[in-house]
Design a protein around this nucleic acid. Structure first.
Lengths: 226, 226
DNA sequence: CGACCATTTGATATGGATCAAGCGATGTGG
DNA sequence: CCACATCGCTTGATCCATATCAAATGGTCG
């Protein structure tokens, strides 16, 4: 369900052949051309688990979380998607997770059927769909490996992951709350907080504010990364 | 590295066009036609993590485990593959897990390059590769959700999963050891053993032998499945 | 029968959860 | 512009599920 901004189906532009990049071009370019920009405000739902996966999305600005809620209310966050990331692409026909904007976000909304139809004609696009799913598989496998580690290891891995993605030297501005981090790592907010405090007193990181983290000793964090 | 049985590259048969099923056929049929049967004895390595993913595999008989070893020796089993299952298919070019036969096993070995080449011409095959990777993605997502649950829930989910796959009414013959189960569920063998004993005294299951498990009360197990 | 390996069972330790305050920043209404 | 309510985060005290360490049991194969 699209709560904040409704998609009117008329608003989707059909790709025209003159929009297509020359064959042999990296097909990701093709994908982007087929999207409509949309805005979601903080905590707005982008789609829900089990809804038909008619669209896929590319983050332009902001951050998106995908998650599942278990019967008893526990929430597991599957991923944080940042600018440039594609999410919501399914090989099957419904979404396996829900998606929400963590902060006000802008995303490109891309019609899946158009892409799938294109893939039937264009080999490059077909391969690109496969590659994207393969990349996602790899990401989930890594995430699964995280969940068998200790709290320190999970938090260290998380910080390194965020730092790598931000590509901003050693300081990271986290867009998500402690609760989001906890649900991503399978821990509680108290454990996240204590572990960060611990890492700070070990001089591995600095915490100028609760959302800003400076990596002071990457080798130490990498050692915890196991 | 293929420790028990060596693949001689000459032994692979190239698919010929007369082997291809008619267009529109479910492409899985195509995939199987391209394979060479091979045997692996108990505990034999089929491939190792990070090795080039030149082949994919389909289990004919026996069971295969895929796994990763962390720096400190912890092992995480990613999946158990049983007859009919395809494993070792990668969208990238190297294996992200290692694979070993749990019991003496026969697998069909399929050359990836042949399949990828075929996919470039045959849309159905391309779509099938995508679907297989998508199915695997879904499986790993479910597995990840397991790892945030309690021991009882994990074991109950595991038993139900095995029972569904065996499709043999209510009795399951486990091909794997307690250690394998433990490494799949992110628990220790002692916890597996205690949890099974507990489920038995709760009359949810029966344990005629350590490898044979009879599901006595599926609703109860499903309730634990959360 | 005896050795070996897998499994179970028992006793204890511990990492992270839970329960409960305190604290600091942010925003709102008077 | 300040007083206060709110919310997110941290810190403290205690509990508990699962790990760890250790021993007994059982099943399998020479």
């Amino acid at each position: 369900m699209l709560t904040q901004t409704q998609i009117s189906s008329a608003s989707f532009k059909q790709p025209t052949s003159r929009n297509l990049p020359p064959a042999g071009d990296h097909a990701l370019g093709t994908i982007e051309l087929m999207g409509t920009p949309m805005s979601f405000s903080r905590n707005a739902e982008i789609y829900g688990e089990n809804e038909p996966a008619d669209y896929l999305y590319k983050v332009i600005s902001g951050t998106v979380r995908t998650y599942k809620i278990l019967a008893d209310g526990r929430r597991q966050i599957g991923a944080f998607h940042m600018p440039g990331d594609i999410f919501g692409l399914e090989a099957g026909d419904s979404h396996t997770f829900s998606a929400e904007a963590i902060a006000d976000s802008k995303v490109l909304v891309i019609k899946r059927s158009a892409l799938v139809a294109l893939a039937a004609r264009d080999n490059d696009v077909a391969r690109q769909l496969w590659t994207l799913t393969g990349r996602e598989l790899h990401r989930v496998q890594d995430h699964m490996m995280l969940l068998i580690k200790t709290a320190q290891e999970r938090v260290a891995s998380f910080l390194l992951e965020m730092a790598d993605r931000a590509s901003a030297s050693a300081a990271v501005d986290l867009p998500m709350s402690r609760q989001d981090i906890a649900d991503y790592l399978g821990l509680t907010i108290e454990t996240i907080s204590r572990t960060l405090t611990q890492l700070e007193s070990d001089a591995a990181i600095e915490l100028p504010t609760s959302r800003r983290i400076v990596l002071r000793n990457r080798p130490a964090l990498n050692r915890l990364n196991a």
